[in-house]
Every structure is written in C-alpha cells, then in structure tokens.
C-alpha cells in the first residue's frame, strides 16, 4: 500500500509538510515536543540529515521517533556521509521500520559544517540516489544482486526555483523526474511571480511540487538570506514589511507573510502544497497555517 504521504500527494489536496532537526546529542525533548505540536496539522514531517554538515542524531533515528508519535516521517538522505552500500542498507532498514518516504539530497559541503576535516563521500549524487531507490524497488541492489524482501518507497527530491543561473538547475530537475522523483520540496520561495514562472515549466512534468516556505523572523535574517544563502531571494517589499514591524512583532509579521504566501499558493492552485521550514521556531508552524486560513 502507498504511504500515507503518497496517498495525500495523490488525493489532490493541498499537501503540507514541515521539518524537524534531531539534536546534537541524545536529548530529543525539543524534537519530540515539536513532533507533538506538528503531527496533527501537517501531512508529513521531514527529519533532516546532518543538516548544514553539522553532525547530529541520525535522520533515520529521528524518523523512528516521528513514527512512534504516530506521525508520517520523510527521511532526508544526503550523499555526503555514506557510500552506496551504507545508503542502500539504511534504505532497507528504514523501509522495514515503516519509514517509506525518502527525500534524496546531495548534501551540503563538508567545509560549511562542524567537522571541517572529515572525508566527504559523494559516492552517489542525488540523481543516482533516486535511481538507487527505484532499483531496490525492482528487487535488485546496485550490484545487480537479488534482494530477499523487496521494499517500496515514495521518493522525492529538491529543486531551487530561484537559482541563478536557473538553466543548469532545470536540467537537474528533469533528470530527477526521469529517475523517479515523485515529489519536490523546493528551496524557499518568496516571489510568487518568479515561482509561477518556475511552475509553468514544472507543470510539464509528472511530479508534485511543494513550495518551500521559510519563516522570516526578522528583517536582518531576510537580508542575510538573500545575500548569503544560495538560491534564496527575498523581495525588497517583504524586507521592508519585516523592517516596519513594531518592536517585538517581527516574528508575528513573519508568520503573517508565510501564511499569506501559503494562502495565495493554495487559492490560486499554483502548486501541490507547501513545505514549511521554521528553522528553530517549529512551535509557530500551527500559527502559520492558521494565518493561511488552513
């Protein structure tokens, strides 16, 4: 049977996903608290994988906790830390434990993280990882050997609609679709006109697109992201709106902006859903959805 998340994707409803990040250490209280807050308001919860190349509790372990709480996990898997054998082994384990959704990522570079002398693996890339998922589903591993017990997954990937230049990104997008990406969670988008242009292209492909919504918490953060984070562009009017927020109300304004974006995406049926990234403010995700009228 298809995973709950896959059923949601195929139901035609406007799908909502969000994400939680495991702790650095064994204290999972904050993450468990976030899962409790989020599980009834979203369709699935991503668990990040050593995000930003910072070593943490593993994503597959985090997904187990999401499962235990009765929610639907999406396993983020990067190619940075594991070779093709370890990735396949973890995919088998995840499937056996009932973790059926997987987001295939390249992974951030080692030098941006907190283990700057580590060996980066990248034995596979995100396109090859997608194909690996589909290969396992065919009952074979990457070595061409038969599997005893065949898994099945709902596999997705990411895309950066605001990438500059966009053309190489769109080539990779098409390759990901060709290798079986059933859904995409995008990098943060803020400019709906730009996003509509991207969607016009993406709609030519048989895949679901969940627009990435990153909560703005201050004007400074908005400026910082535009300047420093690859593929993120916050239009000036939104930066001004954040800057104009009364003292102590910036987060509230950020929630309103996120809610408004989601509301418009849904109303105009621009894409198939949203992926909300609240970056440390997971507890306000329900407020964002309320602001979106959901």
């Amino acid at each position: 049977m298809a995973s709950k998340f896959k059923q949601a994707l195929n139901s035609g409803k406007f799908v909502v996903t969000t994400e939680v990040g495991p702790a650095k250490g064994t204290n999972m209280d904050a993450m468990l608290h976030h899962i409790d807050l989020l599980k009834d308001v979203v369709d699935a919860i991503n668990v990040t994988d050593n995000q930003s190349s910072v070593m943490r509790f593993p994503s597959v372990g985090g997904c187990m906790l999401v499962k235990q709480k009765g929610a639907e996990p999406i396993l983020q898997m990067t190619c940075r830390d594991r070779n093709r054998m370890a990735l396949q082994a973890d995919l088998l384990y995840a499937n056996y434990m009932g973790i059926e959704n997987v987001l295939c990522l390249t992974g951030d570079a080692i030098p941006v993280g907190d283990h700057k002398e580590a060996k980066s693996v990248f034995d596979l890339d995100s396109v090859q990882l997608l194909k690996t998922v589909r290969t396992l589903e065919s009952g074979k591993d990457l070595g061409g050997n038969d599997l005893d017990g065949v898994p099945s997954y709902c596999a997705g990937a990411i895309v950066t609609p605001e990438a500059n230049p966009i053309e190489p990104q769109l080539v990779k997008f098409e390759k990901k679709v060709n290798e079986g990406a059933e859904f995409f969670q995008t990098q943060a988008i803020y400019d709906l006109d730009n996003f509509k242009k991207f969607m016009k292209h993406a709609r030519k492909y048989d895949t679901k697109i969940l627009a990435g919504i990153v909560l703005l918490s201050s004007a400074g953060m908005a400026r910082y992201m535009t300047k420093n984070i690859p593929g993120i562009f916050v239009p000036q009017d939104l930066i001004d709106e954040m800057a104009g927020a009364p003292k102590g109300q910036a987060l509230k304004t950020g929630i309103e902006i996120a809610g408004r974006l989601i509301g418009e995406l849904k109303k105009e049926a621009i894409c198939d859903g949203v992926h909300i990234m609240a970056i440390g403010k997971e507890e306000v995700v329900p407020d964002i959805l309320a602001a979106a009228g959901m």
């Binding site: 390249t106 570079a109 890339d125 990104q169 990779k172 990098q187």
Partner: peptide, 17 residues
C-alpha cells in the same frame, strides 16, 4: 563534490557554495 549529474543546490550566481 565531484558531482557528475549536474549542479547541487549550493550554486549561487555561478559560484560554488
């Protein structure tokens, strides 16, 4: 990252992350 199937999401203005 030695990628062979196209750019990662880290590319920015044609530069490497």
């Amino acid at each position: 990252k030695g990628l062979v199937n196209g750019p990662c999401g880290g590319t920015n203005d044609g530069k490497c992350e």
